[in-house]
């Protein structure tokens, strides 16, 4: 039963991840005044990459990098409950908690970074460096917000955190914390203005430079699932989670669209700019939010 549940969760995350990704390309095309590709385009891309005849590898670590990254995404999906009540779609959330998930979020990128590094391509490493440097500042506001939420709920457990919001969601109870977390979340989603990691103008594709064929396909799939996990996290922490699948879809969709629109209109920050921005605005919001707690 649990196994089925887990598989279902993964399927939902995978499906919706790609759907949202397709949606993102569509929506941003509309913002640009284009039509954009079909909704399933990203899915097609990943299938095509899986069925390419060859993929280049640089050795076993290069091979394992995307696997670790995807495992990280899978774990993230499994350890965040989809719904705030009932037995189904809870995954392994009772075996972990928010702190575990916050750390699991970094496991994938690290695995990937190891793979990238083993390719020996300097552009890949430059991308990773940018990513990690940005991560310094990216996580701070999110952590502050998460700390606020945890202290407020008196537990790091997702169930309790969501229960604590049954009367008023954290977004309204702690608007500053939400604002801080939301800006961080934009960065986590890798959208503009925080998309300097893979800037093709300067560093080829950054971390993904050397990944081809099935490796790239795996990276795309995990990225779709991972995005969904991040949406879930935001929904659970600040919007009280979802009672049923429909609500979940609605809430994640709203969050996603918001992120997409913001991403479509902002220009890219450089690494230094994004760090300075993240430390200036959202971190300050988070600190004030914590002080008001």
């Amino acid at each position: 039963m649990l196994l089925l549940d887990l598989l279902l969760m993964l399927l939902i995350a995978y499906g919706f991840g790609f759907l949202y990704y397709g949606l993102y390309r569509n929506l941003s095309a509309r913002v640009h005044g284009r039509f954009g590709p079909s909704l399933a385009q990203s899915f097609s891309d990943s299938i095509k990459l899986f069925v390419k005849e060859e993929s280049t590898t640089f050795g076993w670590m290069f091979y394992l990098g995307p696997v670790i990254m995807a495992s990280g995404a899978v774990l993230n999906v499994l350890f965040i409950p989809f719904l705030n009540q009932g037995e189904s779609l809870q995954g392994l959330s009772s075996y972990g908690n928010l702190i575990v998930v916050l750390y699991l979020m970094v496991l994938g990128p690290l695995g990937n970074a190891l793979g990238v590094g083993s390719s020996g391509n300097p552009f890949g490493v430059m991308g990773v460096t940018r990513g990690l440097t940005r991560l310094l500042a990216l996580e701070l506001p999110f952590y502050l917000a998460a700390i606020g939420v945890m202290i407020d709920a008196g537990s790091a457990d997702f169930g309790i955190i969501m229960q604590a919001q049954s009367t008023q969601s954290n977004m309204f109870a702690h608007p500053l914390l939400f604002a801080a977390a939301f800006i961080s979340f934009l960065g986590f989603m890798g959208k503009s203005p925080f998309d300097v990691v893979g800037a093709p103008q300067e560093v080829y594709s950054g971390p993904a430079t050397e990944f081809s064929g099935k490796f790239l396909a795996l990276l795309m799939s995990q990225s779709a699932m991972f995005s969904f996990a991040k949406l879930l996290l935001m929904v659970n922490l600040f919007w009280g989670g979802a009672d049923h699948l429909g609500e979940l879809v609605a809430k994640t969709f709203v969050l996603f669209v918001a992120a997409t629109f913001i991403g479509s209109v902002y220009a890219r920050f450089s690494t230094v700019q994004s760090v300075e921005f993240l430390i200036r605005i959202p971190t300050l919001l988070g600190i004030v939010g914590l002080a008001l707690l």
């Binding site: 899986f50 005849e53 993929s55 280049t56 640089f58 995307p66 696997v67 064929g213 099935k214 396909a217």
Partner: peptide, 14 residues
């Protein structure tokens, strides 16, 4: 995932 990657149509060339 490792199995999936191994079974994928795409063959890894080192």
């Amino acid at each position: 995932l490792l199995g999936l990657l191994q079974l994928a149509h795409s063959k890894a060339k080192k």
